[in-house]
Design a binder for these strands. Structure first.
Lengths: 345, 345
DNA sequence: GCCTTTAGCGCAATCGTTTTCGTAAAAAAA
DNA sequence: TTTTTTTACGAAAACGATTGCGCTAAAGGC
């Protein structure tokens, strides 16, 4: 099967003009008379002529498309961010090609190379949990491919970044638990190679210290796969529950970890917040109908997507090399619900 | 900024060969001597030569990419389906370009035209709730663009389809509610222009009739935007609750409607299933941690995505026009949880 | 030793578009 | 009328890759 569209050549032949004349007429060149222009435009709209974007890409060296690499779209934070990316891209007439790394370093590398060879004009990335080394991105960046980072970022590439205020979000979540009277607050988080992990852990630690508590390393559990592997999270949770002075609250650092932890606790018939309170980073639109309704640190995902896309397109369309880069830090919001509210003693 | 990659020309120049020789060598043509081939291959891999896909697309008239239009990726059913699409596409070396209609007819039209002009080799579509007329797709299909439908389908286009067994899924959900002793079972669903709406409603009606009950039209509420507009769902729900013989159970027909209804009922402090039971179509990975855990009709979203992609690629790669089409109907699964379990009287 | 075959490579067209340059005819200036 | 300037258009190269065809030389057949 073949999909045939009308080309500039067809128009030229039909109107007895040359290809170049038609092209210029379509672009409204002053070299072409009003009559010819009118004729061409009429014919073009009659037969719904649309320039072949592939040919245009080849000619202009730009594809008017941007690539996106996230760990997983099956996650409200990223799907919301992608909505933001798409809205800005559409408005500026760019296409968006979305790929998923599934938290795998290998797939991140493969995707980035594939996208760059597909001649996207730029790349928006949130790093995978497995990624420790960003040489694959540095290579592309040095070759001149505009790259913008959001959420899980790295300073190894000199470029724009958009992140949530992870430190503050974690600080406030932890402080909230402290204010509710919880003292043995555990932290389940992802790989330490991720910027978000480090920043959120700092907020967590600082809140404890500011309350005069010493962070207890036994209360901190890393899940290298960021919750993608349930068994890993289960293990971390079990280790916490088996501690002598078992935690009375848990602060989970990512979307998947929050829902998985909640699910596991319920499977174990552990009451929340009665036996253990829970606060988590999550953008789930259903956090309010969880059992119990989950206290959440919500990131401005849509806005993050919009901002990073604006910045990337700036980069792409800039005539001269950009040397000064922005790091946008957007505020999170703490939505207090039942899962962290101290029941009357 | 410009991203420069190595081309066949560069190789030719460096090795003092012609462009065509290099191209043939890279393709392992028998016309080229082993020595030359080895030389070219060595140089190519040393400098990481990758054929420019844009140029290849232009030459071959194929882009090795497929377009996807769904209403919203911020929804576990579709994000899982996309995972299925991507996995098959990747394996067959196709790219996937995802777009969202946001349940809007205009955006569906715009997306389909945009994708076709971006020369995707084929299109996978689940129709928007607003779509009543599929002329835009028929037009593209008649021009020879392979199109495959899943989930929300239409028979106006002669092509492959993959759907869940909506009738049976709805029938079983309703029968389950009946078996639990509920008798006044309401149905909140989307626009009647959607195939899934019609099929699910048929299952619902038939289950009632098989139980000797007459479907009551006052118990059936349509939400034209499929839950995208919360106010619409709220209104439908309010109307149900204000009925004299208020329903004792609700069967919601889609992901967004299910979560929204649950959320609204909880906001109104209506006990589930005590005052009203709830069963809904949903692929939410968090249905088990909802309050209450939500009895769900789960669709095999991943498999649906995989199957429809296989079929589309068959269509794309078929040498001769395809005249016989498949309609795959995949089984749903009823996951019974708390929201529909009759409390002891 | 002459003719045919074939291995090995280059030329040039092609995909659809953009863009520079050239050029004819018409209009303006001389 | 002659020269110059405009106006309006066409020819052709380019983007990077593919491919049918033609060409040259060496190898083989007689």
């Amino acid at each position: 099967m073949k999909f045939e569209a009308i080309t500039i050549k067809d128009i030229a032949k039909a109107l007895n003009l040359s290809v170049s004349t038609v092209s210029k007429a379509l672009h409204g060149s002053h070299e072409i008379s009003k009559e010819t222009k009118a004729q061409v435009l009429a014919y073009a709209s009659k037969y719904k002529y649309k320039p072949n974007p592939i040919a245009q890409s080849l000619k202009k060296g730009r594809s008017k498309s941007i690539g996106v690499i996230v760990c997983n779209i099956d996650n409200n934070f990223f799907s919301q961010a992608i909505n933001g990316i798409e809205s800005v891209a559409r408005q500026k007439d760019y296409n968006v090609i979305i790929t998923q790394s599934q938290e795998s370093y290998d797939r991140e590398v493969a995707n980035s190379e594939h996208l760059s060879s597909r001649s996207v004009d730029g790349l928006i990335i949130s790093l995978s949990a497995e990624t420790r080394n960003v040489d694959h991105l540095v290579r592309l960046h040095e070759k001149g491919l505009p790259i913008a980072l959001f959420d899980r970022v790295t300073d190894a590439i000199a470029t724009h970044q958009v992140i949530a205020d992870n430190y503050k979000g974690a600080y406030e979540a932890t402080r909230h638990l402290l204010q509710q009277g919880f003292r043995r607050i555990a932290h389940i988080t992802s790989s330490l190679s991720l910027s978000i992990t480090v920043e959120r852990m700092q907020g967590y630690r600082q809140a404890l210290e500011d309350a005069g508590l010493q962070p207890d390393e036994r209360y901190i559990k890393l899940c290298a796969h960021g919750g993608m592997i349930q068994e890993e999270t289960r293990l971390a949770l079990m280790q916490l529950l088996e501690l002598e002075d078992r935690p009375d609250a848990i602060f989970t650092a990512s979307d998947r970890l929050s829902t998985t932890t909640l699910s596991l606790l319920r499977q174990m018939y552990i009451e929340i917040p009665g036996q253990i309170a829970l606060v988590g980073f999550t953008n789930s639109i259903s956090a309010d109908i969880f059992n119990p309704a989950l206290t959440a640190v919500v990131q401005p995902a849509l806005e993050m997507g919009q901002q990073i896309t604006e910045l990337l397109i700036q980069l792409i369309e800039s005539k001269r090399p950009v040397t000064s880069f922005q790091k946008l830090v957007l505020a999170t919001e703490l939505k207090i619900r039942d899962s962290s509210t101290r029941p009357p003693a």
